[in-house]
Design a protein around this nucleic acid. Structure first.
Length: 198
DNA sequence: GACCAGATTGTCT
DNA sequence: GACAATCTGGTCA
């Protein structure tokens, strides 16, 4: 995926990311999963974004150029990964919330513990654990690193839009996107009603 | 299936 | 010192 793809507002990138393939080379194996769920965080104007209160050491990556990874640690034990969007200086990001496993399920199971494919990557912290993504990957470039995105031509028929999951502010904004009918989406429920669009 | 408590530490006030 | 873009395992239907 070219860097220009990410050099757009998070609200445009998030739905476009659905159906794309996230790949990760680790432990001598390439792991792949199709993105089935994502949330947009629009930066300094978004009360739900870590970047809302400005640029800090933690949020610095989001203010940088697009096509990089923002990985944060939360609840004392979980990592979640975002793709940085928008141009340099604007703090947009898209949280990858769920994957449909395609390759390397053995490796995922080894990291996550034995469980059905449906439950390997159906949550932001789960997929980071499955791919072995942690603090070290914060700031990684999606171009020329061991994590990258592929477009295999998969066509997404219908996207559903809802409010975001787990927020205490900005939970009224319809910024969560997922592939309609996918059984691999996370169990987390949105704050309010769902909105569907063709 | 729905609801709830507990884990555990980095980050910012 | 409060709280977090979460997950898991428990209880009660």
């Amino acid at each position: 995926m070219p860097r220009e793809f990410f050099a757009r507002p998070a609200l445009q990138v998030a739905p476009d990311l659905l159906g794309k393939v996230l790949a990760r080379y680790t432990g001598g194996v390439t792991i792949r999963g199709r993105i089935v769920e994502a949330e947009a965080y629009t930066g300094q104007t978004d009360p739900g974004s870590h970047a809302f209160r400005g640029c800090t050491p933690r949020t610095m990556v989001m203010f940088g150029p697009p096509g990089f990874l923002y990985v944060y640690f939360t609840y004392g034990m979980h990592y979640c990964m975002n793709v940085v969007t928008d141009v340099d200086g604007v703090a947009g990001a898209v949280l990858i919330r769920a994957l449909e496993p395609l390759d390397g399920m053995d490796e995922m199971s080894r990291r996550r513990g034995e469980r059905p494919d449906l439950q390997l990557c159906n949550g932001p912290a789960k997929l980071c654990a499955a791919l072995g993504v942690g603090r070290q990957e914060n700031g990684a470039d999606l171009e020329g690193s061991e994590i990258w995105l592929e477009d295999d031509g998969f066509i997404v028929n219908q996207v559903e839009v809802t409010t975001r999951v787990g927020l205490s502010a900005g939970d009224d904004l319809p910024f969560r996107f997922f592939i309609a009918g996918s059984r691999f989406v996370s169990g987390g429920r949105p704050a309010k009603a769902t909105i569907t669009r063709p």
